[in-house]
């Protein structure tokens, strides 16, 4: 929205956002699989603000070479590859059959990251919406805890192999981190997000 764009300012374009997300998890001690910035639609007193896709960085499961057989069915894999081919054609303009990058299996976490791009959350709802509304971190570790969460996104993440989901509020949005590993609350990470995603000030050097 115009208000969000104005608040973020020219220094905080999507490339800058990408650098922050990438820096956050590439330099972290923990092994995060992805990072997403959910961007707030801004303050509009006639309607609740909505958190939508701002940008994301998918790192993958670096410590887990693919040794475990995937549980996804052949039909599900074909569906995922078809969607990826279509998206690739949409982006590159090339014919899907010519693209060799889709041959490889689309992992559960890749798929979870991709479908995240279609999601949005009203302030107060869903994991990112709750973090935004309460202005408090939401940190869920463990498949058991994710599977019983009242938030659809937590349950969905668990289904796709995520074991830890964290939503950290910042100015103008929420930073979400996910991992296939068990990661317990880190004050260091919370503080880093506060510094890196404080849009009220100029972006700090990484």
């Amino acid at each position: 929205s115009a208000s969000t764009s104005a608040a973020i300012g020219s220094e905080w374009n999507q490339d800058t956002l990408q650098q922050r997300l990438q820096g956050l998890i590439d330099n972290a001690r923990e092994s995060w699989t992805y990072a997403i910035f959910w961007q707030s639609s801004g303050v509009d007193y006639t309607a609740p603000s909505v958190l939508g896709w701002g940008d994301g960085y998918y790192k993958g499961e670096v410590n887990k070479p693919k040794t475990v057989e995937s549980v996804t069915s052949l039909a599900e894999q074909e569906h995922r590859k078809k969607v990826l081919r279509e998206l690739n054609s949409l982006i590159s303009g090339s014919h899907s059959q010519e693209n060799e990058t889709i041959d490889e299996e689309v992992t559960d976490t890749e798929w979870f990251f991709l479908i995240s791009m279609t999601q949005s959350f009203v302030n107060g709802h869903g994991l990112p919406g709750q973090a935004m509304f309460s202005n408090q971190p939401v940190w869920i570790t463990g498949r058991d805890r994710l599977s019983v969460s009242h938030c659809e996104r937590a349950r969905q993440g668990q289904v796709f192999g995520i074991q830890t989901i964290v939503c950290l509020p910042s100015s103008n949005g929420v930073v979400e981190l996910g991992s296939t590993e068990l990661i317990f609350q880190s004050l260091d990470l919370i503080n880093q997000v506060k510094v890196l995603f404080n849009f009220g000030n100029s972006p700090p050097d990484l």
Partner: peptide, 29 residues
Amino acid sequence: DLPLSRKKSLRRFLEKRKERQVAKSPYAY
């Protein structure tokens, strides 16, 4: 049509995916 921010994110995701696959390829050196 996709919003620009998602197009950029998707392009990055697909490029990185290709890089990871090339790195895993037995022909990579």
